[in-house]
């Protein structure tokens, strides 16, 4: 197996006496979409800014294709393309001018025309940056991240502020980018996005990696990997539900009961229903989403999860 394209070990960054990033370690393998997922303020952006060489770590090591992003900044910028959170372009610069300008920064840039075509910007080439929609701006930033023919791109909160359709279009683009052989480091706080796109995810909370796994692995390891919902033909006693094994939570709304648990919970519930001769109308058993896993991993309020059923 080739060496990881990005390696972060024991990364620490302190602002005003507070460790925003506190011992983060992960490795991104070539050709994967690696997600950095976490709540707002968890230290995601600071982490990837250290990978991009825009910030100097207080401790730990960061390597991109074996290079130090700070000491070897010029060389790292040639293999790593970046889309930054909250950065803009000159308002009166057109799409074409921006692509040509950034192409001139690299020794062997991609041709901007097919790139603009692929990103759906071909008919916008004469449009000024300030006149682009949010989705078009983001696509232009993807194009600028790719114009230098990088081996890895870092995309930070790419789809924030996009409408659902634009977001889905962008997801397809990111998959295309990966399929073209470019490794993707994706920062997001959207579960659906991480679940759909990422091969592996590092969940960061309060400056630490609290879990690192595939989306399925993260979901499977939660206390409540299965969601069961049904409308019982006769009301069930709360105590019976509370006694179900491996139950994480139970809620009732308008006669419909939703349980979070595991396969054990499902088995026990079916036994319970049979014993009481209760019919479960519209019974749905579904896998939990990354959402549930994420809340499980990042919510540190005492007694909140694994709590008693409602």
């Amino acid at each position: 197996m080739p060496p990881p394209i990005i390696e972060v070990r024991g990364l620490r960054k302190v602002y005003g006496g507070r460790a925003v990033v506190d011992g983060v370690s992960f490795a991104v393998e070539q050709g994967e979409i690696f997600g950095v997922l976490g709540p707002n303020g968890a230290g995601k952006t600071t982490t990837v800014e250290c990978v991009e060489g825009l910030r100097v770590p207080d401790a730990g090591t960061v390597r991109v294709t074996g290079l130090d992003p700070v000491a070897d900044h010029p060389r790292v910028t040639r293999v790593l393309g970046a889309q930054l959170q909250e950065s803009e372009l000159q308002p009166k610069l057109t799409v074409r001018e921006a692509l040509e300008l950034y192409a001139a920064f690299y020794a062997t840039p991609a041709d901007w025309r097919p790139l603009a075509e692929r990103l759906g910007l071909a008919d916008k080439s004469a449009t000024r940056f300030a006149k682009l929609s949010g989705g078009q701006k983001q696509r232009l930033f993807i194009a600028l991240a790719l114009i230098g023919n990088p081996r890895v791109v870092v995309l930070d909160e790419l789809t924030t502020g996009l409408d659902p359709r634009a977001r889905r279009d962008t997801w397809r683009l990111i998959e295309d980018v990966r399929d073209s052989g470019v490794t993707v480091l994706l920062v997001t706080h959207f579960m659906e996005e991480a679940q759909r796109l990422c091969d592996r995810i590092a969940v960061i909370d309060q400056g630490r990696v609290v879990a690192l796994d595939t989306p399925a692995g993260l979901i499977g390891r939660t206390a409540s990997s299965t969601v069961i919902s049904f409308t019982p033909s006769v009301p069930l006693a709360p105590a019976d539900l509370a006694a179900l094994p491996r139950l994480a939570s139970a809620t009732e709304k308008d006669g419909r009961i939703t349980l979070n648990g595991t396969d054990d919970t499902v088995d026990a519930l079916l036994t319970l229903l049979a014993r009481r001769h209760v019919t479960a109308h519209q019974l749905r058993v579904t896998d939990a989403t990354l959402d549930d896993a994420f809340l499980d991993l990042t919510d540190t309020r005492p007694g909140h999860h694994h709590g008693a059923p409602a």
Binding site: A82, L84, S87, P91, F105
Partner: peptide
Amino acid sequence: YRERGILRRMSATP
């Protein structure tokens, strides 16, 4: 340029 992050975006290029 600084306020809009234009200088910063350029920092991520060669």
